[in-house]
């Protein structure tokens, strides 16, 4: 990403990471064990930079049951639908020009790329509280 400073980038993805951790902790209230990994889906249009999210992850997980968990990000490219050609196109990474690559018509229908979703977590259940 261009044109913004380190601090603002950091703050933004940290907020997102903190929200994710919060949601997961709530969802796992009925499960015991510690979290090994978290699977997340991030669309190219979501406003979240995957590397920054990875960078913020450890900080966001500190002092929670997600501490030490690995963040696995599935990146989703932007897919658009051209009404004129009746076909779907995947836009090249970091080049979001909403125009059909085949007929050059302007396209407003975005089929995918705005996702920001927690898919699943991988949990280890210990036999006993002391087990490591």
């Amino acid at each position: 990403m261009r044109g913004h400073n380190y601090r603002s980038l950091y703050m933004h993805e940290l907020s997102i990471a903190l929200r994710a951790v919060e949601t997961i902790v709530e969802d796992l209230a009925d499960h015991s064990g510690s979290v090994l990994s978290v699977q997340i889906r991030v669309g190219a249009l979501s406003g979240v930079v995957p590397d920054s999210l990875r960078f913020a992850w450890d900080v966001a997980c500190a002092d929670t049951r997600l501490s030490g968990s690995v963040l696995e990000i599935e990146e989703v490219p932007v897919r658009i639908w051209c009404e004129a050609c009746q076909c779907e196109h995947t836009l090249p990474d970091a080049d979001f020009v909403f125009r059909c690559p085949r007929c050059a018509a302007s396209v407003t229908e975005v089929m995918a790329g705005r996702e920001l979703e927690i898919l699943s977590v991988e949990l280890t259940e210990h036999e006993s509280p002391q087990a490591h």
């Binding site: 994710a20 969802d27 979703e117 949990l123 280890t124």
Partner: peptide
């Protein structure tokens, strides 16, 4: 130790904000 198990969450990260 039990084998790790996968728990489905399927939630928008910004669910609370939204």
């Amino acid at each position: 130790m039990n084998p790790p198990k996968l728990i489905e969450i399927r939630k928008n990260i910004l669910k609370k904000n939204d």
